[in-house]
Simulated assay, not measured.
Amino acid sequence: MDPTARRRRTVLIATIVGGLILLLLIGVGVYGLIRGPQTTEPDDPTPTDGPTATSPTLVPAEPEPVVALRGPEDFAVAVAEALFTWDTSSGYGPADYAQMLADVTADTEADGAASDVRAYLPTAEVWAQLRTHQTRQQLTIDTIEIPAAWDDAVAQAVPGQIPDGAVAYTITGTRYRAGYWGTDPVTTTQPVAFTVFLTCTPERNPAPPPADPISDTCLLLRLSQLDNPLR
């Protein structure tokens, strides 16, 4: 074969291979955006034609107020759902979803709790990227319980060290994230675990009888790091 022709053929093959590798890297990068940051030893979900058989139906979700007049366990569930339920195509941003939790945060822990919440939500820059894939997220809770470490902390605390009515709930569940890779639907799942620290105090119900005269007003204190809960 003519050396010039062989050289041209070699350059052409190298160009094609390089282009395929670039396309593969772009695809992996887009899929990673939808999948989100990983924790240790995550599952390896693959793109599907729609939600998996075990996933909930993901619908557009606007920021919804967190109801504070609940028992402590119900309030912890509401906080967890507010943390993990968002939709980049709703027209709202991460700050709007974070505000729902700021509205039910104790004043004494406002700065710390705000920092905790931001760690759970995408940054504005990542949100803008996820929005191009119409990414939305939801949480299914598997277990919720007061961890043994919290009971130990309460038993060892000196008077006044822990706020009145304070309690911790460790929650485990599955995070579902869905979006589009080009025109193809993509759904991924990831197990999560975290602890919600909150406080609830009794408050008289202004509603007339036969309403329960006493209800709990709950406020968020802090959140553990994601996947680093109290046990």
Rank of each mutant, 00 (worst) to 15 (best):
V192N: 05
G71S: 12
T189N: 11
Y97M: 10
Q225L: 07
T39R: 14
R8F: 09
A113K: 06
Q190V: 04
L24N: 13
R131M: 03
P185A: 14
P63S: 10
V186Q: 02
F194Q: 02
E109G: 00
Q134R: 15
A153D: 01
E81I: 10
T143M: 11
L83P: 05
A119L: 11
E203W: 06
L69Q: 06
D87Y: 01
V59L: 14
M1P: 04
Y180D: 06
T201K: 12
V126P: 01
T46E: 12
P63R: 04
Y92G: 01
R9I: 06
Q99L: 14
A166R: 10
S89E: 12
V79L: 06
G173F: 01
A124K: 13
W181I: 04
S89G: 15
P202N: 08
D116V: 09
V196M: 04
D184R: 11
A119C: 02
I21S: 08
D216R: 11
T201M: 09
L230R: 06
A82F: 01
D216I: 03
Y180E: 00
L24H: 07
P159R: 14
A166W: 00
R131E: 07
T217W: 10
R222S: 08
T187K: 01
L101C: 07
V104M: 03
Y31T: 06
P3K: 02
E203L: 08
T39H: 11
A178I: 09
E125G: 00
I16F: 10
D87M: 04
A113T: 08
V28Y: 12
Q161M: 12
P56V: 11
I171M: 08
A155T: 14
T54Q: 12
V196T: 03
S115N: 14
D142C: 02
L130M: 15
V59T: 15
A166K: 02
P191D: 08
V30F: 11
V196F: 08
W127S: 11
T183P: 00
P94G: 09
L25W: 05
Q38C: 00
D49A: 14
L25Q: 08
R177C: 09
P229A: 04
G19S: 13
A207T: 12
W86Y: 15
Y31R: 11
F75T: 05
T46V: 15
S215P: 00
D74Q: 04
Y176S: 11
D216S: 14
L22H: 10
D164F: 07
T123I: 06
V77W: 04
Q161P: 00
G27E: 09
F197E: 02
L121A: 11
D49L: 12
G91Y: 12
T189Q: 15
A157H: 08
A207W: 09
I171C: 07
C218G: 04
V196W: 07
A124P: 03
P37H: 06
P147T: 06
E62Q: 08
R131F: 02
W86F: 15
Q134M: 12
R222E: 10
